Simulated assay, not measured.
Amino acid sequence: MSQIALNLPNPLAARESLFLSTDGAPFTTSRAVAERFGKQHKNVIQSIENLITNCPDSEFSQLNFQPAEYLDAQKKPRIEYRLTHDGFAFLAMRFTGKEAMAWQIAFLQAFNALEAELRTKEARFAKALDHVRPTLRPIVEGTEQGQSRADIAAPLGKSVNSVTYHRRKARELGLLPTHH
């Protein structure tokens, strides 16, 4: 069968339904799922709430289905859910039919592509940081291995005070745990 006969999704349409949270994690919304799968939003909400109610792992449902608000056409606040990659997959696997399967594939490919882009971006930042602060990585790794400041400093040709400074910067960047 041809794509036109099945009304298969354009891969970009699924990608346009993905967003990034404030912490940089990709998500989609229950409204985007309803639109792409040709369902009423209230029915998607009901499906999500049934999943949440019946999910044997409440932590899974809390992490993957996060309630949020949006303003409808009349500027009234309405509920929607933000779905992670896993939340989307958990919900969408319940939809049936060839068109639903096509959208499932398109969404999963879009999630995977966006997550790969984010990993690549993070790797570029890590590489740039290694160039900007070439001693930061060996100091973090030495600290994680329990080496003393002197043992870390010697092969780097740095002072013990330099190691202390870089450890402090690493803690500020979240690369090492903070002191308690």
Rank of each mutant, 00 (worst) to 15 (best):
residue 170 A to I: 01
residue 139 I to T: 14
residue 60 F to N: 07
residue 180 H to M: 06
residue 132 V to N: 05
residue 173 L to E: 14
residue 74 Q to L: 12
residue 91 L to V: 10
residue 80 E to K: 02
residue 69 E to Q: 15
residue 160 V to F: 00
residue 165 Y to T: 11
residue 10 N to I: 07
residue 47 S to I: 00
residue 145 Q to R: 12
residue 141 E to N: 14
residue 3 Q to T: 09
residue 114 L to Y: 06
residue 49 E to I: 05
residue 158 K to T: 07
residue 11 P to Y: 02
residue 151 D to Q: 12
residue 14 A to S: 05
residue 74 Q to S: 15
residue 28 T to W: 03
residue 61 S to G: 10
residue 75 K to D: 13
residue 20 L to P: 06
residue 158 K to Y: 10
residue 17 S to Y: 00
residue 84 T to E: 09
residue 53 T to K: 00
residue 132 V to H: 08
residue 117 E to K: 12
residue 102 A to V: 04
residue 164 T to D: 10
residue 100 A to V: 03
residue 125 F to I: 12
residue 83 L to H: 00
residue 64 N to M: 01
residue 106 A to T: 05
residue 93 M to Q: 13
residue 141 E to P: 03
residue 30 S to V: 02
residue 74 Q to Y: 10
residue 62 Q to V: 05
residue 56 P to T: 07
residue 61 S to A: 15
residue 33 V to L: 01
residue 146 G to K: 04
residue 81 Y to H: 03
residue 89 A to P: 02
residue 29 T to D: 03
residue 112 N to P: 01
residue 14 A to Y: 00
residue 142 G to R: 02
residue 162 S to L: 04
residue 123 A to P: 02
residue 162 S to W: 07
residue 176 L to T: 06
residue 118 L to S: 08
residue 157 G to L: 02
residue 171 R to N: 08
residue 121 K to H: 13
residue 81 Y to I: 00
residue 24 G to R: 09
residue 176 L to S: 03
residue 49 E to P: 03
residue 7 N to V: 05
residue 154 A to P: 00
residue 125 F to H: 12
residue 86 D to R: 12
residue 134 P to H: 09
residue 37 F to H: 07
residue 90 F to D: 11
residue 130 D to G: 12
residue 177 P to I: 06
residue 54 N to Y: 05
residue 134 P to R: 11
residue 141 E to T: 11
residue 128 A to Y: 04
residue 59 E to Q: 15
residue 173 L to R: 10
residue 135 T to K: 08
residue 24 G to H: 07
residue 70 Y to N: 07
residue 3 Q to V: 03
residue 123 A to F: 05
residue 18 L to K: 02
residue 68 A to G: 11
residue 86 D to W: 05
residue 59 E to R: 12
residue 86 D to A: 15
residue 50 N to T: 06
residue 2 S to A: 10
residue 58 S to A: 14
residue 32 A to W: 01
